[in-house]
Computed example of a mutant assay.
Amino acid sequence: MEGYLDTFGNVLKAIRKERKLTQKMLSQDICSQSVLSRIENGEELPNVLVMQQLCQRLGVTMDQVMVYNSVNVKETDILLESMAYHFGKKEYEKLDELLQRPGLINQLYLDTDIQLYFYYAGSCEFFLHGNCEKALSLLKQGLSYTFKLDKMHVSKEEVQLISCIGKVYGDMGNLEEAEQYLKKSIYLFYRLPNQRGSAELTKIFYNYASFLYQKEQYTLANEQIDCGIHLARQKNSFYYLEELFLLKSRVLHQRKEEQEALTYQQLSAEVKRIANFG
């Protein structure tokens, strides 16, 4: 029984941290925070109802928690970290190679891991292969694994997926759907707990700003760009900073602010140089 307690508690804790939830957020209206702490530390066995409710809030089934214990978690985590690295560096060819590994999808047991698989696959279809229809299908499939309209807590991955779906819709010329998804991603970003914000979310501001720029809504585009730049600087990250600087330069050019436009063009080139050097 002690081994089971350790196993269930450790896995519960690992999934909670993966979801970026605090003990207070997970336990709210289910059990006390102190009870959850004892469960995670293997000091208490939860009753079935509590187990079900905790799993439901985490977006996994009890079976998935049990399976999660028996697989080679470390190997899967290393693979996911490698994919995340290539994705963050926009190395889509290398990412695509990992995604093509035989049986990869069968190595993933958590809904969030499967969601990431479809997120990465959809991104490769869009950026690498230029297949908007397939990209849209994969991105929507990834979102469906965890997202529900009445969810209390959304994840940064869900926000990014919604933004990317909007981006693809925009490239397909479906502007109404594009704007709906892009606006939704910004709205959900501001519902994320502060500690869950991450540098990767600068991309959602770039996506929406690009859409607004294409619609010649330069003031609104500039506001979104500044939000993205602020987040990148707050997180000390170069992720999408080059693109944001370049887009701001174009916005300023449209507004006839040529000197400042040149400054941001130079900043974009400098970020690109530093990122390539790194």
Score class of each variant (00 low, 15 high):
Cys132Met: 14
Asn194Tyr: 15
Glu157Met: 04
Cys164Gln: 13
Glu91Lys: 13
Lys215Val: 08
Tyr208Lys: 11
Glu223Trp: 02
Tyr92Ala: 10
Tyr119Trp: 15
Leu98Phe: 11
His153Gln: 12
Lys89Leu: 09
Asp226Pro: 10
Phe126Val: 00
Val168Asn: 02
Asn106Glu: 15
Leu143Trp: 07
Gly88Cys: 02
Gln160Asn: 12
Phe118Val: 03
Gln214Trp: 02
Glu176Pro: 02
Leu138Trp: 02
Tyr85His: 10
Leu143Asp: 10
Gly142Ile: 00
Met152Thr: 15
Gly173Asn: 07
Leu212Ala: 01
Leu149Gly: 05
Tyr117Arg: 11
Ile225Met: 04
Lys215Pro: 00
Leu116Gly: 04
Arg191Asn: 00
Gln180Tyr: 14
Cys164Pro: 01
Ile225Trp: 03
Leu182Pro: 01
Arg191Glu: 04
Cys164Asn: 12
Ile186Gln: 00
Leu149Asn: 11
Phe189Tyr: 09
Arg196Pro: 06
Leu116Ile: 02
Thr202Ile: 13
Glu97Tyr: 08
Glu91Ile: 14
Thr112Cys: 09
Ala135Asn: 02
Ala121Glu: 05
Leu139Phe: 13
Lys184Glu: 13
Leu116Tyr: 15
Arg191Asp: 05
Arg101Ile: 07
Glu176Ile: 15
Leu182Ser: 04
Ile229Cys: 05
Leu212Asn: 03
Thr146Leu: 14
Tyr218Met: 02
Leu201Asn: 05
Gly88Ile: 00
Tyr213Arg: 08
Tyr119Gly: 05
Asp96Gln: 09
Leu182Arg: 02
Gln141Lys: 15
Thr112Arg: 13
Glu125Asn: 13
Gly103Cys: 05
Ser185Arg: 03
Asp111Met: 03
Ala209Tyr: 02
Glu93Gln: 14
Gly197Cys: 00
Glu216Tyr: 06
Leu188Trp: 11
Cys227Leu: 12
Leu212Trp: 03
Phe127Cys: 09
Gly170Tyr: 11
Val168Tyr: 01
Pro102His: 06
Lys94Gln: 15
Gln141Arg: 14
Pro102Asp: 08
Lys151Arg: 07
Ser210His: 00
His129Arg: 15
Cys124Gly: 10
Tyr117Phe: 15
Lys156Asp: 14
Leu143Gln: 10
Asp150Ile: 14
Lys184Trp: 07
Lys148Ser: 10
Arg196Tyr: 04
Val159Ala: 00
Thr112Lys: 11
Lys89Asp: 05
Leu116Arg: 14
Cys227Met: 12
Ile105Asp: 01
Tyr109His: 14
Ala84Met: 11
Asn174Gln: 01
Gly197Trp: 06
Gly103Tyr: 10
Ala121Lys: 15
Lys183Asn: 09
Lys140Ala: 10
Leu138Gly: 03
Ser137Ile: 11
Glu200Lys: 12
Glu158Met: 01
Glu200Cys: 09
Ser137Asn: 12
Tyr190Gln: 08
Gln160Asp: 07
Tyr213Ile: 05
Gln100His: 07
Asn174Ser: 02
Gln141Met: 11
Met152Tyr: 05
Ala178Gln: 03
Phe147Met: 09
Tyr117Ile: 10
Lys215Met: 08
Gln141Leu: 10
Asn207Ala: 01
Asp96Cys: 07
Phe205Cys: 02
Glu93His: 14
Leu110Ser: 09
Cys227Trp: 01
